[in-house]
Design a protein around this nucleic acid. Structure first.
Lengths: 143, 143
DNA sequence: TTGCTCCTCACGTCACGTGAGGTGGC
DNA sequence: TTGCTCCTCACGTCACGTGAGGTGGC
């Protein structure tokens, strides 16, 4: 989207982000990724390094949290809103407004962390169970 | 399946395992769950506490590891093979054979642990990033 | 008997995979 | 020009969701 960065085609973006061209087109179709500019029908989609980061982040949230694309859209929108707030924070002088913005960001981060921590805790429990079984087998091997 | 335990119907099993009756029927259809005995067509499926444990474990692996049902089937079959080996271990006297069985169990656990640890590590990285952002916001709030 | 849950089709949906046939050019 | 990747349909698949119409009984 940026005019300065070197342009990537859809296959390269897919490889960089660990997915497929079909998936990228589908995400664009349902509005999870923005339309790639005013592109005459049949013309190639072009992306930049920022798009790579953005898509990587989306794929990571999807895989680690196991959310639907609808929920993922909400998360991404919330993330965009947070970016907009951050921009406003830089512009604004009023201390009260700045404090408000920070508190909102904090709330958002807390919700995200809650989701991630719950999942991480479940995974740790599974890992502990497997490790315990492994220890029992090793103890028997020594006997 | 056991004759002694109190029988559950499909809806109860679904509630206990955190899924739906439709999902259980589908898993039976594709062979991920065993057919519920010789059941005359139209008759209710019946389950016991062991089935609850089994299905809970399946749902947990599915959600935490994000594997396809085909891969999940492999995992469950490997788990069954492990259970069979454990039974053989109890029966068998020969020290060499017992050792072989333990080594096979160890290899299986190592593969499972590898999968779980990789995912746990990714989740920890995401958690750390979010936590770092949270700390930055809190530091600004104090300023 | 009345409710409630269950049964079996069977079509719908979500998130893509996979050609078919054609066009573009970091 | 020749390859390679891209384009847009459009149908297929996986993992279920959701009725429709009917039967069972921990």
């Amino acid at each position: 989207m940026s005019a300065t960065a070197p342009a990537l085609r859809i296959g390269e973006l897919a490889r960089e982000a660990g997915t497929t061209a079909r998936t990228i087109r589908y995400y664009e179709e349902i509005g999870l990724l923005p339309d790639t500019g005013q592109r005459p029908a049949g013309r190639h989609r072009l992306y930049d390094a920022g798009d790579v980061e953005r898509l990587r982040e989306i794929m990571r949230l999807k895989e680690l949290l196991g959310v639907s694309l609808e929920e993922l859209k909400q998360l991404v929108e919330a993330e965009d809103a947070r970016a907009a707030l951050r921009a406003e924070f830089e512009r604004v002088e009023d201390a009260g407004r700045r404090r408000e913005i920070l508190l909102e960001a904090l709330g958002h981060l807390d919700r995200q962390l809650e989701l991630v921590r719950r999942r991480a805790a479940e995974l740790r429990r599974l890992e502990a169970e497997l490790a315990a079984r492994r220890r029992r087998v090793r103890a028997r091997l020594r006997a």
